[in-house]
């Protein structure tokens, strides 16, 4: 029952995290920043706005992206199979990419292209993460992982690789080439407006819930450690965001694949032989 409630309020939790992040980010830049509930104000406004529809598929794919992401989050909360989660998440990204390609705007195409390339960069790490959990727990089930003691020490290198995935997924510099506000004005989200943009906006919140829930898996049954990890990584991500510039998409793939794959492989090899 509790889990069902958590699933329903998941977007709201994500919104709160996002709002808090905007305040923290502003404070790191020495300014006051928006109020904490700003994302919800934005949401209220976007419902009220007129929606311009480019073509039906574009809008529906945007909504599908949001719905699939919600299912992904629900799967994690309900303790389903980790592999399902990762592949469903891939599906949700594919919906977004298809939406990007379904309109004529050139910026949307470039954004979708970059999104696709970033998927290539981070997906192997997520799969290796699942394999790593399997090697320790003997099961892909998230409920099993949650019942076991913390696994962060055994999976330390994969944890480091996962930090880069967080940067990509949350569109934080240096790995925010997919959104790249100053180059391609938000990439795939450029043609969405009104209510349809709101689904994309809320999908962003769910993305926060998704990555931080995946992160909490490292802590296993230790809730306090899970919370500690969340706080620590949250500030780390924002500090790195405020200390780096955006790097190009080809650099992103090179760096993430090189470091991420090396770390992941190292960890997996270590787990299977030690």
């Amino acid at each position: 029952m509790l889990e069902a409630v958590v699933v329903i309020i998941a977007p709201i939790i994500g919104g709160l995290i996002y709002g808090f992040e905007r305040v923290v980010c502003a404070r790191m830049q020495n300014r006051q920043g928006p109020p904490l509930l700003q994302p919800f104000y934005d949401m209220g406004k976007l419902i009220d706005k007129q929606a311009l529809i480019i073509n039906p598929y574009h809008s529906i794919l945007g909504i599908m992206h949001f719905v699939t992401l919600w299912v992904v989050v629900a799967f994690i909360i309900l303790g389903q199979n980790l592999l399902y989660v990762i592949f469903l998440h891939l599906l949700s990204s594919i919906f977004l990419i298809l939406a990007g390609f379904s309109v004529k705007s050139i910026f949307s195409h470039i954004g979708a292209n970059r999104e696709l390339m970033s998927v290539i960069a981070y997906e192997p790490i997520l799969i290796m993460l699942a394999v790593g959990f399997y090697l320790i727990n003997g099961s892909f089930d998230i409920s099993v992982i949650r019942d076991n003691p913390p696994q962060i020490l055994q999976l330390f290198f994969l944890f480091l690789a996962f930090l880069m995935v967080i940067q990509i997924k949350l569109k934080k510099s240096p790995f925010d080439a997919t959104e790249a506000h100053q180059e391609i004005v938000g990439g795939v989200e450029i043609e969405f407006s009104g209510v349809f943009f709101e689904f994309l906006y809320m999908a962003k919140w769910l993305e926060y819930v998704f990555v931080y829930l995946l992160l909490s898996l490292f802590a296993g049954d230790n809730l306090a450690l899970g919370f500690g990890l969340f706080i620590g990584v949250f500030f780390l991500v924002n500090l790195v965001d405020n200390a780096t510039a955006r790097i190009k998409i080809n650099h992103l793939i090179k760096i993430v694949l090189m470091i991420g794959l090396t770390f992941g492989m190292l960890n997996l090899v270590g787990l299977s032989y030690v």
């Binding site: 830049q29 300014r31 100053q182 965001d241 405020n242 510039a245 955006r246």
Partner: peptide, 16 residues
């Protein structure tokens, strides 16, 4: 230049 390179924090710092 910093903002266009995606370095928001530096933009804010210099503008401040």
């Amino acid at each position: 230049t910093c903002e266009n390179a995606g370095f928001e924090a530096m933009f804010m710092r210099i503008m401040g």
